[in-house]
């Protein structure tokens, strides 16, 4: 796996709706810009070997870094695969929609749910939103949130951006009634 660069983004929200958020709401993203392992090979029927060769390594690379950047226990998480223009969405999906990738994050964060995801193809500098949900209860409304990311020079046409996101809390000023009140 050829990693060109690692990007780390940490957002802290101190005010929302004009009111203080204390402690500050914190979200972290760590993204790896990698060469698409199927670049230049035409239509590859069996993505299995490429998944086996890369997905676990990526999960192992990103999971500890995103938790370190967050600097607090993760309560919500999500993932992203952004495919350069010459690749297939399927290439990005292949690397993140496998337990080989996500289990590293789940294990490190004490999580039990599946990671919500964004898969998208675009040019370098494309803006993408990573959805996050609670790490043990995907129905918990307070923790449904997104974080927006842009890497100025990635992905190149033959690259993928693979990212993990973690939040230390739900939305700032979250105050929606729980799902159970409507059931």
């Amino acid at each position: 796996m050829v990693v060109r660069k690692i990007v780390t983004l940490v957002e802290e929200i101190h005010l929302e709706g004009g009111r203080p958020v204390a402690p500050a709401a914190r979200i972290a993203v760590v993204a790896a810009v990698v060469r698409n392992p199927w670049a230049g090979q035409g239509f590859v029927d069996d993505l299995g070997p490429g998944i086996d060769a890369n997905a676990s390594d990526l999960g192992e690379l990103l999971a500890p870094q995103v938790l370190d950047a967050l600097g607090a226990p993760a309560e919500a998480f999500g993932k992203a695969a952004i495919v350069g223009l010459d690749g297939e969405i399927e290439h990005g999906s292949a690397l993140i929609h496998t337990l080989k990738f996500g289990d590293h994050f789940r294990k490190a964060a004490g999580a039990t749910t599946l990671l919500p995801a964004v898969e998208k193809r675009g040019p370098a500098g494309v803006v993408f939103d990573i959805p996050l949900k609670h790490i043990t209860d995907a129905t918990l409304r307070s923790h449904h949130q997104t974080v927006e990311v842009r890497i100025a020079d990635a992905p190149h046409p033959d690259e993928l951006v693979i990212a993990l996101a973690a939040a230390a809390q739900g939305r700032p000023q979250q105050r929606l009634a729980p799902l159970s009140t409507e059931q």
Binding site: R4, I6, V7, E11, E12, L15
Partner: peptide, 20 residues
């Protein structure tokens, strides 16, 4: 940063280039 200025949010963005 939070005393004299009303800071709504802060954003930290880092890049590590492994290959070029």
């Amino acid at each position: 940063g939070r005393v004299a200025a009303r800071v709504r949010k802060t954003v930290l963005y880092c890049e590590d280039i492994l290959t070029e």
